[in-house]
Nucleic acid binder design. Structure first.
Lengths: 204, 204
DNA sequence: ACAGTATGTCATCACTGTTGACATAGCGAT
DNA sequence: ATCGCTATGTCAACAGTGATGACATACTGT
């Protein structure tokens, strides 16, 4: 017991421990969010000392960013027929919670959202919007302002997602699925179709 | 120096101190958000010991909730003519940042969003939605599902607000104001008018 | 067998929200 | 005027946080 006891230090490869830490962090962050999870909890779950977490990832924030990349599984929907995309998107968003990958995407997105007072987190969110909506949609839209409209569709979907899963508005979470689709779908479709509103006054 | 020096303890009335703390907390929370602001910083700004902050408000979270009530100044817009409400709402949202009360509402709302992993904060957000959108709008809407549509309008506005001020999507923040209004306004108007989409298949 | 490096732990720091013991001011009653 | 009581406030401390640097051990190549 005279030795300062650096511990038994059974080694695994550096990449293996790194991945163990990442895995633990992913699980805890998506479950409880950025602030609620401590590096000691992550370290414990990875079977490692807390200092090592910092050594491998620099800081808790960088670990969060490294680990929390969201893949909204909307790619196949976005490739569907344009004339029904609004409804299809809403249907898909409503179904997210019932698929495992979708539910994970939703919780990850919520975690990112709650941590988005940090600029790097905002960057990740913007990249998600870009990847999931702007890239697949912009090229397909007919008419003016395709890119802007794609981003506005993302804003609408984002509004629906946050109302459902962040704010948890009971009027939305408990609304009948078909009703919700029939109302919100066409509102989105409006931006996809690119019809001008007859009441619109100025179109520069 | 023998006395343990509880300090000179210049008194003010309890309500005055309470208000001083609340004021300091409001300012710091709206500026920097819930997590970034410490009790000691609030106490210092109020000219008081940190322990007193807890004594008066119970906890940092309860202080946050007591102090951060958002008043989206949309009442007058919501009373305007229904046939142009979509555009008017978008215009108003885009103008928020340039009025002092609007900018404060936006920053407060952002702070609430970032802290909305706590249920009481979600409650506050839901009350804001109810007060700002559901109450003034539901009664005015013609057609089916008035309440649901009002909440969906809130979701759309929320999506726009978060895209602009939380995610800070540059495609939106740098888009020409009239273009943005002309696209997003009609999309909202769709829910206000309550027109059925010709492609809609099911209307229960 | 030895040196060097890769891997890991420990003690510690400044900071956080929160608590309980303590101190003083101000006021009403005598 | 002086006591006592309560309202108001401060202080020291605690367990927790993220982060840092010194240290220890295992492994690898020679």
């Amino acid at each position: 017991m005279s030795a300062q006891s650096g511990g038994p230090a059974r080694r695994r490869s550096a990449v293996a421990t790194r991945e163990a830490i990442a895995e633990a962090a992913r699980a805890l962050f998506t479950a409880d969010g950025f602030e609620a999870v401590g590096i000691r909890a992550i370290a414990a779950r990875a079977g490692v000392d807390a200092a090592l977490v910092i050594r491998y990832f620099g800081s808790k924030e960088r670990l969060f960013l490294d680990v929390m990349t969201v893949d909204l599984p909307v790619a196949t929907v976005m490739e569907g027929p344009l004339e029904n995309l609004g409804r299809a998107l809403v249907e898909h968003v409503l179904d997210l919670s019932s698929s495992t990958s979708g539910a994970l995407a939703v919780t990850s997105l919520s975690a990112l959202f709650h941590a988005s007072d940090r600029e790097p987190v905002r960057r990740t969110l913007r990249e998600t919007v870009e990847r999931a909506f702007a890239v697949p949609l912009t090229g397909r839209l007919r008419g003016d302002d395709a890119e802007l409209r794609a981003h506005l569709v993302a804003a609408q979907i984002g509004g629906l997602l946050t109302s459902l899963h962040v704010v948890r508005d009971p009027v939305l979470t408990e609304a009948p699925r078909p009703t919700l689709i029939s109302w919100y779908g066409p509102a989105i479709q409006h931006l996809i179709d690119g019809r001008f509103d007859p009441d619109a006054q100025v179109r520069p």
